[in-house]
Design a protein around this nucleic acid. Structure first.
Length: 264
DNA sequence: ATGGTGGATGCTCCA
């Protein structure tokens, strides 16, 4: 089973690029974030036409939005709300083999990493805390779970271009790293990308639009993740980041991240 | 210290 996660930054604007991602990477399931598209306007047919017939969406007007685009059927589709908001940041479903995939778009958190001055930062930390408690109360380590998405946190030193220079930059502050690590430890999640490409190799999945030359300066961060619970760990055979997608015409600022589980 | 770009929306918010 091949799973790809991608923050597409508008599924309508980048529909053709999404089709290109599917043709190149051939995932069984593509998990999208920031679709920025109300459900009624989602480009279902374009995906169905190339064999991705099973689609679940949780979108809204203007912001956020997540989707599951699948070649294989799934059941028990669910979209949960967090921190008392209805803002299209989660969708999940159960796939053959009793594998439950959860697709998240974690709040970015604004610019100021101080919960007293910045409500968005408080919301980000509260969101992750609530997700942690939800998994703790509703799932167990022995379940076959996959958690993917734009987590908007680069947890490791080699997940950012400069650990030192990003310590006070939202996405890499110690309090966020602690928060996401606690979520990870709750069910002993395995970071599949790092399982295949351990530290200290630098890995990035996002480069700012504001750089003069994103590739030369290479000031990236690894914000997009694919985690699995331990029953799935023996099946991890490959993981990759499609860096070249950042250089495409009209790119997203994120690139697709893929993990392959050889389930026989 | 600052501003840089891009998307959706509609005279601005969010990343």
């Amino acid at each position: 089973m091949r799973i790809t996660t991608w923050n597409i930054n508008s599924v309508r604007l980048r529909k053709e690029l999404a089709l290109e991602v599917l043709k190149q990477l051939k995932p069984d399931v593509l998990c999208l974030q920031e679709t920025k598209c109300p459900d009624a306007l989602f480009p279902f047919q374009a995906f169905r036409d190339i064999g991705y017939k099973y689609i679940a969406v949780n979108g809204m007007k203007g912001y956020n939005g997540v989707a599951l685009v699948s070649r294989i059927p799934f059941e028990s589709e669910s979209a949960l709300n967090w921190v008392k908001r209805t803002d299209s940041r989660h969708i999940s479903a159960i796939f053959p083999g009793d594998i439950e995939i959860h697709n998240f778009y974690v709040p970015a958190g604004g610019d100021e990493p101080d919960v007293k001055k910045n409500d968005k930062f408080a919301h980000k930390l509260d969101f992750i805390n609530e997700v942690k408690h939800w998994f703790s109360a509703n799932r167990k380590k022995s379940d076959r779970l996959v958690l993917v998405g734009d987590l908007n946190i680069a947890p490791l030193e080699s997940d950012v271009w400069s650990h030192k220079q990003l310590l006070k930059v939202v996405s890499h502050t110690p309090v966020e790293v602690l928060n996401i690590t606690q979520l990870q430890e709750e069910l002993d999640w395995i970071d599949t990308t790092r399982h295949v490409h351990p530290e200290p190799e630098k890995l990035f999945s996002w480069w700012s639009y504001r750089a003069r030359d994103w590739s030369t300066s290479d000031r990236g961060r690894r914000l997009d993740h694919i985690w699995v619970t331990s029953p799935l760990k023996p099946f991890i055979t490959n993981s990759s980041i499609l860096r070249e997608a950042r250089g495409w015409e009209k790119p997203s600022d994120h690139v697709p991240v893929t993990t392959e589980l050889q389930l026989h």
